[in-house]
């Protein structure tokens, strides 16, 4: 139990945040996370690679989160603006101060992509978070969630398309500038 406690303390906040991203409700996110850890504790011997414990629990938690979402579609009410503010307040930039324009553009693009991620429908959110944060391959997602590989691939494709569409002028400009910068760097080299 003590060893599991260490794993719990390490991964609980991330698993909780993953569920929160899908459910956008702290109480239900907590329920999903706790249920996932309970299941993980009893099924731990079945986990082949302990190095993937975090991703494994997160996948279980997202399954619970989707179930909770489906059961409470009409009940969960969250002010999206509050959620946005919560995420925005945590925003950090990696840009340096010598390029204020680029920094501004990056900030706006990040803001847009975060809004877009939050607005994805829960199932797409689940796939995106497992793929891009928990670094599971398409095959691993399919196996863990027990869905066909084709479903995973098409969901991820749809999610990427949606995110791309949601990026308005700022985001597109940012990409364009990025390509220009790469070209200049390439020419200089």
């Amino acid at each position: 139990m003590e060893a599991f406690r260490l794993l719990y303390l390490k991964y609980y906040p991330k698993v909780y945040s993953t569920c929160f991203l899908i459910l956008k409700n702290s109480a239900t996110a907590e329920d999903a996370a706790q249920e996932a850890f309970l299941k993980a504790y009893t099924k731990l011997p079945t986990l082949k690679d302990l190095g993937k414990f975090g991703a494994w629990v997160a996948a279980i938690a997202t399954k619970h989160a989707i179930n909770i979402y489906n059961q409470n579609k009409k009940i969960i009410v969250v002010g999206e603006e509050d959620l946005m503010q919560h995420f925005l307040s945590l925003w950090e930039t990696k840009a340096d101060d010598y390029e204020p324009c680029r920094k501004y553009m990056e900030k706006e693009t990040n803001l847009e992509i975060r809004k877009a991620i939050c607005r994805l429908e829960p199932v797409l959110n689940q796939m995106v978070v497992l793929k891009y944060y928990w670094n599971l391959t398409d095959q691993e997602i399919a196996e863990t969630l027990q869905v066909p590989l084709g479903t995973v691939k098409s969901s991820l494709y749809r999610a990427r398309r949606l995110l791309e569409k949601k990026l308005t002028s700022f985001g597109k400009e940012y990409f364009k500038r990025g390509k220009e910068r790469e070209l200049i760097r390439h020419e200089k080299a």
């Binding site: 991330k14 945040s17 993953t18 991203l21 995420f87 945590l90 925003w91 950090e92 693009t109 990040n110 992509i113 975060r114 991620i117 995106v128 978070v129 891009y132 944060y133 990427r160 995110l163």
Partner: peptide
């Protein structure tokens, strides 16, 4: 971009 922003959201 998705990966970086998810990291910022989840690890905050």
């Amino acid at each position: 971009l998705i990966s970086e922003n998810l990291q910022a959201l989840i690890e905050a």
